[in-house]
């Protein structure tokens, strides 16, 4: 897939949406719904009605997709009002009582919430430190393979886990590292004591990072490989003529050349710092218990769906969403200050 493409367009996406956020100009409703007030204008500026008629085929084929976004995304956006309600499913949004900021007050005094925040931050930091550089290292290794056949084969293999579901990945790790798993079988054959990884709270952080690296590291190399293929071959040649060895070429040619991509990805990652994923943690929370395994998204799930405390759960979800937008915004400010092109341009 074209990740560069995605990134370029993601940048564009953020660019426009950030202007909206900052400008604060409301009214996202499409002008398609506006009444055709200027339908009698001259031919150089055709009226709304005439333009709608001219584009009718295009507008009609866009309707199913637009309806989806309006109903599910904007509907859910509006649904966030239940964060300010004492929501009773039977009464619905219109019948439930308004409670103002009560859910947020409760949230700030809730030790379980702060425990989820702490766990989320710890895992996010581990992801940043250990997962972020891994694809870069793998991409450098892949890029240094001269043989096309071997490289394609390794790429095919390492991309594959990206397409497996978290259920399968978790099952595979249990099969490998569980108490009766393959690795423990080997260790006991060698006469050594077993290792306790699955269900061990102390090993939970390293375990979830290892799972993430196994699943996504290969796929994440695509963007780095694309950037590496753009590095000017002549610079390598010149550096080699000047007597630069493998290490110095890496440090003085390769890394500076792909620095913008690294910076951009780092900014994107920082902007999504809290988005550590849901399914992976949902699947394994029980195995280590909420003390270690509860992250913000699982907290929302278990508060809302297991305890039926919908209003409070929505408040926590909304809180996380708002912090997320603020993080993307701040990360971009920092990127600009560092002189790098951020996710959106000024």
């Amino acid at each position: 897939m074209n990740i560069l493409f995605q990134l370029g367009t993601a940048r564009e996406a953020l660019d426009v949406s950030m202007t909206r956020v900052r400008g604060g100009t409301g009214g996202t409703s499409p002008p398609v719904e506006e009444p055709p007030t200027r339908s009698k204008e001259d031919g150089s500026r055709p009226g709304h009605l005439r333009r709608i008629r001219a584009d009718r085929v295009l507008l009609i084929i866009a309707v199913p997709g637009l309806a989806y976004f309006l109903f599910f995304h904007y509907g859910a956006l509006f649904g966030n009002v239940l964060a300010f309600q004492d929501f009773v499913p039977f009464l619905g949004l219109s019948g439930s009582e308004w409670v103002g900021l009560a859910h947020f007050e409760r949230m700030f005094g809730d030790p379980e919430f702060w425990n989820a925040v702490k766990n989320t931050l710890v895992i996010a930091a581990l992801q940043l430190v250990f997962f972020f550089p891994a694809p870069l290292a793998l991409a450098l290794l892949l890029n240094s393979i001269v043989g096309d056949t071997i490289r394609r084969f390794v790429q095919s293999v390492v991309y594959l886990p990206h397409f497996l579901s978290w259920v399968i990945v978790v099952a595979l790790f249990q099969q490998m590292l569980g108490g009766a798993g393959v690795v423990n079988g080997w260790l006991s054959d060698l006469g050594m004591g077993g290792i306790s990884v699955i269900g061990n709270p102390d090993a939970y952080g390293p375990l979830v990072i290892a799972q993430l690296i196994w699943k996504e590291c290969g796929w994440a190399t695509i963007i780095f490989l694309a950037a590496l293929s753009q590095v000017d071959e002549q610079q390598y040649e010149a550096a080699a003529l000047d007597g630069a060895g493998w290490g110095r070429r890496l440090w003085h040619v390769t890394l500076p050349a792909i620095r913008p991509v690294i910076a951009l990805l780092l900014v994107l990652r920082l902007g999504e710092f809290l988005s550590i994923g849901f399914e992976q943690f949902f699947l394994q929370r029980q195995s280590v218990g909420p003390e270690t395994g509860e992250v913000l998204e699982t907290f929302v799930y278990f508060t809302g769906f297991a305890s039926g405390d919908f209003g409070y759960a929505a408040a926590v979800g909304l809180f996380k969403g708002v912090i997320g937008v603020a993080l993307i915004y701040t990360a971009n400010k920092v990127a600009h200050r560092l002189g790098e092109q951020g996710v959106y341009q000024r």
Binding site: A13, G65, L66, G79, N80, Y301
Partner: peptide, 23 residues
């Protein structure tokens, strides 16, 4: 242009689990 903005804004603020459930 407005339709594009309408769609792209959802990228910045994805629907929450509980509100989507209600929808």
């Amino acid at each position: 242009k407005p339709l594009l903005l309408l769609v792209l804004f959802t990228f910045l603020f994805p629907p929450g689990m509980v509100p989507l459930f209600l929808v």
